[in-house]
Nucleic acid binder design. Structure first.
Lengths: 175, 175
DNA sequence: TGGTTCATGTTATAGTATCACATTTCTCTT
DNA sequence: AAGAGAAATGTGATACTATAACATGAACCA
């Protein structure tokens, strides 16, 4: 198997975990996810406007964290505005609607591989190749919830990021 | 700095979880932690120099995330340099040596309440009162490790932050 | 005592993010 | 179809966060 299906079945996150770290049919996985974003927008009455859509495509084209200013540069090169709010607004829209994630540790963004699934993402950041992938986070979310509950804290959102080495870089004998 | 608790007794973190959110003898908890930092530095041959010590005190005086520039302002007011590297170097030292934590989501810093324990912190950030507290993160670290292992990812460090409402703000009927 | 290392200080600059306001586009209602 | 209101986009200005590069000074120890 070298590509991802766009479906949202629960078994999928386990299958796709670390997808970015493996070889796969990239144009197919991008196309599928754009289609899924379109469907999602239609479903929910959201407007996936040209800037927003293009911003998502830019994130999808890389399987890595991309800075807002890098997205901005590419948008500007295609005729959109070239001021920071252009990129930040598009990215914020994508994040708020579950089509992308913000990676706090890197002050950067990545496309979500399971848009629509209401998941708390856990992201893995490879320090050698800089690629970023999502992993299933339900067990992590449960643990966070448990620890927080013990302190009487009501969790509304989480940031869970693992830093280390991806399988490919480990295999190549990095660090 | 890695997870895998090094030897702080497990009962302690549970007891202290959410301390910042409760009433407590603040000057006592600060003094104790400065003493602990001194001991730690002596033990490990680290130099808790005046800037570093003062930076730690500043973090301890607030039970909240403090930005580097706010620390800098206070340091400068006390005769230390007033350029960003002064604050960043002191804060980096504290973070590297487990005396403070960086909060990625806020681009800010907080004093560690368990210096010396080699823990991966989980921090809880209250959106209403902006206070920040640590919670035991061993179960979370284990879950992160598990999800990462399934993707062949070798975890070297983690960022785990929960956003929401602390017990005090919940009791006061916030949002 | 001279050299090495580490800590501090400074200048300059890079990178990230938001505010405030003008203009356009969309949408709904009448 | 016209107009009011809301949403989206564009722009200028600015605030906030962080690091690079290099100079000076203090501590350590052979």
């Amino acid at each position: 198997m070298n590509h991802a299906s766009a479906g949202g079945d629960p078994g999928k996150s386990a299958t796709d975990a670390g997808l970015a770290f493996r070889r796969h049919d990239h144009s197919h996985c991008c196309g599928g996810l754009i289609a899924r974003a379109d469907a999602l927008a239609a479903e929910r009455g959201l407007k996936l406007t040209p800037v927003r859509r293009r911003a998502l495509e830019i994130l999808l084209e890389e399987h890595r964290a991309v800075g807002a200013y890098e997205v901005l540069e590419r948008l500007a090169g295609e005729g959109f505005g070239n001021k920071p709010p252009v990129a930040y607004r598009a990215l914020d829209f994508l994040v708020e609607n579950g089509m992308a994630h913000r990676i706090a540790r890197l002050n950067a963004f990545m496309a979500c591989m399971h848009p629509g699934d209401d998941h708390t993402p856990m992201v893995m950041i490879c320090r050698a190749c800089r690629s970023v992938a999502e992993a299933p986070a339900e067990p992590v979310a449960a643990a966070v919830e448990g620890s927080a509950a013990a302190a009487g804290f009501a969790v509304e959102g989480t940031v869970v990021e693992a830093l280390g080495l991806c399988s490919a870089c480990l295999a190549r004998g990095e660090g």
